[in-house]
Design a binder for these strands. Structure first.
Length: 828
RNA sequence: GGGCCCGUCGUCUAGCCUGGUUAGGACGUUGGCCUUACAAGCCAAAGGUCCUGGGUUCAAAUCCCAGCGGGCCCA
């Protein structure tokens, strides 16, 4: 019944068409990622697949491609940001495998640190004092979290080389490398223990590094306090931290400030504490802020530290490790905020408070830990430092060896290096961390562990020497553990085998790509760059990809308080990992972009389209070897020209990590040209077993499937196995080559003309309210060359557009005119 | 206070570096249509002061300057 309108096909063909349609029914009508995806994930994780595709062999002759991926902190949650870089890393990996590289794709876990300690301490109720048990529970917790995150990664289709390059920063093997790197730096004279002001987080009760702090806007106060002058009169200073009044060491004014010029050098008396301090002038004082007079206390902010050093001022410690006051008498034991209120009250009562205003200002805070954010204090401590400042110039010149995508990201690193003011304090007063492999004496001389003893815990082992070689004093273990960035800044050295695999190191170092987010430029990127350069004498990687942030659906940063947090796992069953991956990759590297499930749905529709096109092709091309025809049909030549363009541009987009370009080509090449135009044009030839059409369709589909595989690995494996299946996996194929397709401008012209006629006739049918299927008579009016072109494809146009009669008229018009009228209406 | 990025149909964006189509696509909206894959579809339509103002130019979404708005980083 459906084929009644072509009665000239005999019964023979009819039944063969029936067979074809029956065969098509073998292919499920709807694409079901929930069923397909886990199946392929299991295959990829099989030992056999690993051996054939993923395994990294040092002796391999293929060129190495090494991607340094972020070891995420083991929180247990795989959030959208993780899903994002996981997808980028996986797509790069698959592309490079297809391109014939020996890919080194690791996955590590940043395991140590405060958040885990807090979980174990508070959620499991294990006391820190029981060090053995505490550490054991930390590791157990870590492993549980890794398990959760790993299965989510796998569900996204991520396939790093778990077998060879999965690592945990707490493991003995990895720790030994960390400690070894510290011994090396010590031997280069870069590591020292000394007393000095440190950034201190009172909530976390540990020192932190400059890179872990940042400014947050907070509500505070500005107190105007009168300091009487010894010789009579007063000077009024403004401060946001009146609780540090007792630690005031001087009063400073700007040398240009006419108001205070005659007071410089005089002595002021600190109210309540009755201590005498000098009034000095310094250009760093802001005349406009407050009264233009500032109290220098030890320590209220980083500027105080600079002044203390510059003027060699005495130091009073008034805040303890838990953020409570000390050494003041009447304020002792109070929290900083409480002390602030109390002293303001006292100043007010005694008449020293001139004014009190509210102030929104930037407060130095522990920003690197999203669950802390509390204000930072400065404490004086014995800490272990790595020298950084003296290498600034070298760092600035060596960083030019790395290319950045996007290029502006190099500025962030450069700015950070330029503005560094502190050496790197690597001591953390915590338990779950890499022990610093040193002992020290009373004079803070460090004695390193024996390299053969690594990994070592100095609190449990005896030092390699009896006494300090410098001063003969007894040795004590350094009880601090290393900053976690000490752990993660040797990923490249560890993976490339710097310390234990010369053969691999020679081939794999420096890594080809470092992948990471903007937020860890001054930490992971900087420290890896710095440490690798110092230890191995070269930059750690050739190229740095700095991706942006995945924002919530409302276009703002995801946060629990805003309730706009989206997790990739929320609707993965419904849309599939492939569609999620495509959504994440549809943005330029470095851009922030909002994540919306509606967009994911759109990507799934694109995959459904590919699925259906494959379904159509299935009865004709499945597992058939069709030779390239001697004289291909002109429309096949046209589409192969389009195809060549697509393949070349897609490969170059992959080379530049511009995945969104590949995706946009799927829309305007695959969907618009292949699905909407070409498939319609060749249906009649497919059904009459035309070799040229079958060859062409088979080839372009296979190429498209391979090209799309890095982005949407599951569906492409499924289609490949059903249509082609020459290999067990797409990853065993090679990237398509299109060098055999000659450019043919005539075919391209005809193809474009056909598209225009197609569109014109469809438009007319719509305006006449005809179904696409209804027969029409068409008259084409155009130039001689146009008419000659169209005559070559007349048969195709007639079959495709249900044209019963086609007539031509030649004129000189530049634009052809197309007249359409319905053949007698059907079924009336 | 300094630096960087972004501002394009209702929404998300491509194009900007290297000036010249009718500013392209997706989602949404509207109308029509069961067509040898696909109604989770097809065909088509509507929808844009390219943030504002100035400048350069034969020509500006694109280059330059100023401003406004949003975001990020640093001090």
């Amino acid at each position: 019944m459906r084929f009644n309108y072509c009665p000239r096909y005999g019964d023979q063909l009819l039944s063969s068409q029936g067979d074809i349609l029956k065969k098509m029914e073998e292919w499920p009508k709807h694409y079901n990622p929930k069923e397909i995806e886990p199946r392929w994930q299991n295959k990829w994780l099989s030992r056999e697949f690993w051996e054939k595709v993923i395994r990294f062999q040092d002796s391999d002759t293929r060129p190495v491609f090494f991607i340094d991926t972020p070891p995420p902190f083991t929180s247990g949650e795989l959030h959208m940001g993780h899903a994002y870089w996981v997808t980028i890393a996986d797509a790069m990996t698959r592309f490079k495998i297809l391109q014939g590289y020996n890919v080194l794709i690791p996955q590590g876990w940043d395991t140590q640190g405060l958040p885990t300690e807090l979980k174990v301490q508070y959620r499991l109720g294990i006391p820190k004092e029981n060090r053995e048990l505490f550490l054991k529970k930390c590791v157990e917790w870590t492993e549980e979290m890794i398990g959760k995150m790993k299965s989510a990664m796998m569900r996204l289709g991520y396939r790093p080389n778990w077998e060879q390059f999965e690592y945990r920063t707490y493991s003995a093997e990895y720790r030994a490398i960390i400690q070894r790197s510290l011994l090396d730096m010590f031997n280069k004279g870069m590591i020292k223990m000394r007393k000095g002001p440190v950034y201190w987080c009172p909530k976390c009760e540990t020192a932190v590094a400059q890179s872990e702090v940042g400014y947050l806007e907070k509500q505070g106060i500005l107190a105007y306090i009168s300091f009487p002058l010894k010789e009579g009169g007063e000077i009024v200073i403004a401060t946001t931290r009146p609780e540090l009044l007792g630690a005031t060491q001087a009063v400073a004014v700007n040398p240009e400030d006419e108001r205070y010029k005659n007071l410089v050098g005089k002595v002021a008396i600190i109210p309540i504490f009755n201590k005498e301090v000098r009034i000095i002038s310094d250009p760093a004082v802001d005349k406009e802020f407050g009264t233009g007079a500032v109290m220098i206390s030890t320590y209220g902010d980083p500027q105080d530290i600079k002044w203390q050093l510059k003027y060699d001022l005495p130091v009073d410690e008034m805040i303890d490790e838990r953020g409570r006051m000390k050494g003041t008498g009447f304020l002792d034991g109070l929290k900083v905020e409480e002390a602030r209120k109390k002293i303001v009250e006292m100043l007010k009562q005694q008449g020293f408070l001139k004014k009190l205003e509210g102030l929104t200002h930037n407060v130095l805070s522990h920003t690197e830990r999203s669950d802390c954010q509390s204000p930072i204090e400065f404490l004086v401590k014995d800490q272990v430092y790595i020298s950084v400042l003296e290498f600034k110039d070298r760092l600035l010149s060596e960083m030019k060896k790395m290319t950045f995508k996007p290029s502006r990201m190099a500025y962030y690193l450069q700015e950070w290096i330029n503005n560094m003011e502190w050496d790197w304090n690597i001591s953390r007063q915590r338990v779950y961390g890499t022990p610093l492999p040193f002992w020290h004496c009373e004079n803070l001389h460090l004695v390193p562990a024996d390299p053969s003893s690594l990994p070592v815990d100095p609190t449990k082992s005896s030092p390699p020497l009896e006494k300090c070689p410098h001063c003969g004093l007894p040795l004590k273990p350094v009880t601090h553990v290393a900053d976690v960035w000490v752990d993660s800044s040797v990923t490249v050295l560890y993976l490339a085998g710097f310390y234990n695999n010369k053969e691999r190191f020679a081939k794999a170092f420096p890594a080809d790509v470092r992948l990471q987010g903007t937020d860890i430029i001054r930490t992971w990127l900087f420290y890896t760059f710095f440490r690798t350069l110092m230890l191995a004498g070269d930059v750690p990687f050739k190229r740095v990809l700095v991706h942006g942030q995945v924002l919530g659906p409302d276009g703002t940063r995801m946060s629990k308080s805003k309730g706009n947090v989206v997790s990739p796992m929320d609707r993965i069953e419904e849309y599939g990992a492939d569609a999620i991956r495509m959504t994440l990759l549809d943005a330029a590297i470095g851009d922030d972009f909002p994540f919306k499930w509606d967009t994911v749905r759109g990507k799934k529709l694109l995959l459904q389209k590919l699925w259906n096109a494959s379904r159509l092709a299935y009865p004709f091309i499945s597992k058939r070897k069709v030779e390239r025809p001697e004289k291909p049909h002109v429309l096949d030549v046209w589409v192969l020209n389009e195809h060549r363009n697509f393949v070349e541009r897609a490969i170059s987009a992959y080379e530049n990590q511009d995945f969104y370009v590949v995706l946009s080509m799927l829309y305007n090449y695959f969907w618009e040209i292949i699905a909407d135009e070409y498939l319609e044009l060749i249906k009649h030839r497919l059904f009459s077993d035309d070799q040229s059409a079958i060859y062409t369709l088979s080839r372009i589909l296979k190429d498209i499937v391979i090209i799309l595989h890095p982005i949407a690995p599951h569906i492409t494996e499924e289609i490949y196995s059903k249509l082609f299946g020459d290999k067990e996996s797409v990853l065993m194929e090679k990237l398509p080559s299109v060098s055999d397709i000659p450019s043919d401008q005539e075919a391209v012209r005809i193809g474009n003309e056909v598209k225009e006629i197609n569109s014109a006739i469809r438009t007319k049918k719509v305006s006449m309210r005809l179904s696409m299927n209804s027969p029409v008579k068409v008259k084409l009016i155009g130039s001689l060359s146009f008419v000659e072109d169209i005559r070559k494809v007349e048969e195709d146009l007639k079959k495709t557009l249900k044209i019963t009669q086609m007539t031509y008229e030649i004129n000189d018009s530049s634009r052809p005119i197309i007249e359409v009228e319905p053949d007698q209406p059907m079924g009336v």
